Structure formats: structure tokens, C-alpha cells
Simulated assay, not measured.
Amino acid sequence: MDRKDKDLAFMLRYENIAWYEDGKVKILDRRIYPKEIKFVECVDYKDVKQAITDMVTQSAGPYTAAGMGMALAAYQCKDMKLEEQINYLKNASEVISHARPTTVNRMKMITSSCADVGIEALKKGNSAIKAIFQRTIDSLERRYGRMSEVAVNLVNLFPKKGKIMTQCFGETIVGCMGREIKRQNKEIEFYCPETRPYLQGARLTASVLKNQGFKVTVITDNMPAWTIKEKKIDIFTSAADTICMDGNIVNKVGTMQIAICAKHFGIPYFVTGIPDEGKYLENIVIEERDSKEVISCNGIRNTLEGVEGYYPAFDITPPEFVSAVVTDQGIYSPYNLKEYFKTEVEQYY
């Protein structure tokens, strides 16, 4: 099979995201990549859930890990009676999908579908493990394929030669965007805010784009406004953890402030992804992570004992700061996202 991760960076290859094999799931530890290439091994689906919670994998990585975790759950219950296996898979689906509160809606789509195909296989006397594993690979192929279409629409908006600012790590769109820039023969360089405290921009986005042959400059999280002005940035773009139907964009904390700066300096902010049908601002729960993650970085504490931290993992950018939402089906205003669903849309996750 000519897979859709062809020509993408190391960490975007399917096996290097999360992979089930022989009763184990291995997940690339993105908390330390690229300084060190290390995989966390999970022998229980609850280990996979915990790895997602602990941010061993981030961005779209948890979606792959969730599917592989469901294959592991099927392995764990393979010697049980049929009804026990069915209940086991349903319970695993619920547990894994709630690994992080802000993305439960998307995760539930994945784990529920995995449970469904696994249960269907069991009722036919087939392997639930193989069915769920194949469903996860099919999901990856579908997601990479559709994000490749998003990338075409996004890169069409880029100048022939220009400077792009990103935020956090958009996973699939970052790699597909880079591949499409090469295909369109455009000369683009990137500025990546570091994205503390896990430094996904510095370690992950910058690594992928560098691996794919681009000039990349990392800046600290308090530099975007000045950088937009002084370096004459042309476009700000990010993926989104949730694209609400009312145009509100949930993404890694820091996105809103860059969007505000982009509007102030007159450059567009293009959000990439698939709108989340049925999701609105009032449905959003912003995950607040352990404050210890803020007062330390790379395992080194930066404050005196007793100093407190505050870590909302995401923020919400209102639609007035969003120039367009770039999807696989075209480019939409944040105010008319319902148009996206006027044609039948294949399940993305």
C-alpha cells in the first residue's frame, strides 16, 4: 500500500506515532523528542489512557494512540466470554475517550467506532484485535488524505515567497502543508513560538518542518507581536482542538493572543481542520493542568518554593479574530460553518 504518510517527517510516520503489536502499544514520547527518541510501552489500555493524559503524545497523536489502545483492549479480553469481551470494549472506549476533557467529543468518535468494529468482528467469529487495528490504520489514511486536501487549500493562500507563523503543533497539517508547499514550488520560511511548557512548537513543529527541508526560526512565546512587525510575517496559521460551529476556535493556549496581534498588524489568521458538528462555545470545557508544569521546564524548577502556577491548556479565539477556516471542502468564514455539512461528509476520525 502506498501510504499517505509518504515523504513526511519521522514523527509523522504511522509507526512512530503510536503502534499496536503483540499485546503492546508503543507511543513515541513527544515530551522529550527530538532530544531523545524513546517509546513508552503500554501493556494495558489504561496505560494508553494515562500516556495521553500525561501528554506523552499530543496534537493528533492521541487519536492514533486511542485506536491502538482499543486494539490492546481487545487483546486483553480475547480469552473472555463473548458478552464479557463486548462489555470490556465498551468500558475501554469510555475510559480512553476521557483521557483529556477538552477533546472528549473527538476521542469518543474514535473509541466508539473501534468498539463497534471490534464487537461486529467478535459476533462474526473474527478477531476484534485485527478489526480494530485495521480500523485505526484506515482512520489514519482517511485523516492524512483529507488533511492533504486541507493543505492544498491552505497553501493556495500562501504567497509565492513568504513568512508564516504557526502555533503549537498541528501534527498532520504541518507535514501535509510542508509537502504541499514543495509541490507548489513556493519559497516559505516559518516562525514557530516555542509553546511552553512542553515546547511543542520548538521541539515538534520546528523538527517536522526542518526535516522536510524548510528554514525554521523558533521564538519564545512573548515574541509574536514584535516578530510579526519586525520580520514582516505574512500569515498566521494553526490547527484547532475544536472548531466550534459558532466560529470559536479552541487551541493551545497562546493562540488567542497571536490572533489578536495578527489582526492588529493586518495579517490573516487561517485555522485549519474539520468543523466539529454540534459543538458550540457553551459546550467547551477548558482543561486546567497541574500548575507544576508551569513553574518548571524540562524538569527544572524555575521558581522559589511557594510560588504558584496557572496552566489552562487551551484558550478560545473568538470568530472576529479568525480570517477563515480552511477545510478539505473549501474555505469558510467562521460565521457560516454550517455550510460545510450541507453535503454528506465521511467521518473524519
Results as ranks from 00 to 15, higher is better:
Asn126Val: 02
His98Gly: 10
Ala121Cys: 09
Tyr88Phe: 14
Met107Glu: 07
Asn126Met: 08
Leu122Tyr: 03
Ile110Gln: 08
Cys114Thr: 03
Ile119Tyr: 00
Met109Lys: 13
Asn91Thr: 15
Asn105Asp: 12
Ala99Ser: 15
Ala131Arg: 00
Met109Gly: 04
Ile110Ala: 07
Asp116Ile: 15
Ile96Ala: 09
Gly118Tyr: 05
Ile129Thr: 01
Asn91Leu: 11
Arg100His: 04
Gln134Thr: 10
Ser112Gly: 04
Ile119Arg: 00
Met107Cys: 08
Ala131Ser: 13
Met107Asn: 12
Ser113Asp: 09
Ser97His: 00
Cys114Ser: 10
His98Trp: 09
Asn87Pro: 13
Glu94Trp: 13
Glu120Phe: 02
Ala121Arg: 10
Gln134Trp: 04
Ser112Thr: 14
Ala121Leu: 13
Ser113Pro: 02
Ser112Asn: 15
Asn126Thr: 09
Gly118Asp: 14
Cys114Met: 13
Thr136Trp: 14
Ala128Ile: 00
Ala115Arg: 08
Ser127Gln: 04
Gly118Trp: 06
Ser113Met: 13
Arg135Gln: 11
Val117Tyr: 13
Ile110Gly: 05
Ala115Gly: 10
Lys108Gln: 08
Ile129Arg: 01
Glu120Thr: 15
His98Ser: 11
Lys108Ile: 05
Ile132Asn: 04
Lys90Gln: 15
Thr111Ile: 01
Thr136Cys: 07
Phe133Gln: 00
